[in-house]
């Protein structure tokens, strides 16, 4: 009985190529659901931005203008050490680095370079941890609280969505690294690393959307919204 050249799944005994094809399709479909959720967030942010209901878009007492977010926001008990928009780009950069490392690891696995895979997957995992810490610091040092109007709510929820994505990446990234260490990812069986690379690429796009929103849609275009419960304009 010779060992087959086609690797098979330990669970079902089907060829890995079949499993991989199926898993890739499933991943694309899950990304569709994730995209729909992210679009829901984008809609929420931009809809509230465009309406400025009851003048409640900006935090109370603050005037939001593009590029001056930090200076014009009042400081609340949590100290304002960050402006609002540039950390989104910085975190995006960190996540892009993690994604690039993962792609490197996946390409290495495909070409049989096990050391490259270990380096890529391991570093990618570490950089993702860094992104998560960075994101957490940003979220906890905003000069506003969740209750400070629609802008604060929308920005905080974008951060929460980012954190959710990063936790997912951490879990899967840890799995890929551990499996790579055990030799379960190699020249013939690399599809799981490929899936994580694909998913991380989409996560980069989701982060990019958040960064774009918080940078280019800051000051509401509606400057004279109606006053709640009356027929007067502000």
């Amino acid at each position: 009985m010779s060992t087959s050249t086609l690797p098979v799944s330990p669970t079902t005994g089907e060829p890995i190529t079949t499993i991989a094809r199926r898993a890739r399709l499933g991943l694309w479909l899950l990304i569709v659901a994730d995209v729909a959720g992210t679009i829901a967030l984008v809609i929420s942010y931009s809809y509230l931005w465009s309406l400025n209901v009851n003048g409640g878009w900006a935090p109370p007492g603050a005037t939001l203008t593009a590029n001056q977010t930090n200076s014009t926001l009042p400081t609340t008990p949590s100290t304002a050490t960050f402006a609002v928009e540039w950390p989104f780009w910085a975190i995006l950069f960190v996540v892009v680095v993690a994604t690039a490392l993962m792609w490197f690891g996946y390409r290495s696995a495909r070409s049989g370079n096990h050391a490259g895979l270990m380096v890529g997957a391991g570093l990618s995992f570490l950089v993702t941890v860094a992104a998560l810490i960075f994101q957490w610091i940003q979220m906890s040092t905003f000069p506003f609280d969740a209750g400070d109007g629609a802008y604060a709510s929308a920005v905080l929820l974008l951060c929460a969505s980012n954190i959710f994505h990063l936790f997912l990446l951490l879990f899967i990234g840890m799995g890929i690294f551990m499996r790579a260490r055990k030799g379960l990812i190699d020249k013939t069986n690399w599809y799981q690393a490929q899936l994580l690379s694909y998913y991380m690429t989409w996560v980069c796009i989701a982060f990019l959307l958040g960064a774009i929103l918080t940078t280019f849609m800051v000051e509401s275009p509606n400057t004279d919204p109606a006053i709640f419960g009356t027929f007067k304009q502000q």
Partner: peptide
């Protein structure tokens, strides 16, 4: 739970946002 104001019209939330979603 966290007092955000996505749908609270006093603080900048919109009822139409909820209806659309």
């Amino acid at each position: 739970v966290f007092s955000t104001s996505f749908f609270d019209p006093l603080n900048g939330g919109s009822v139409w946002l909820y209806e659309n979603l």
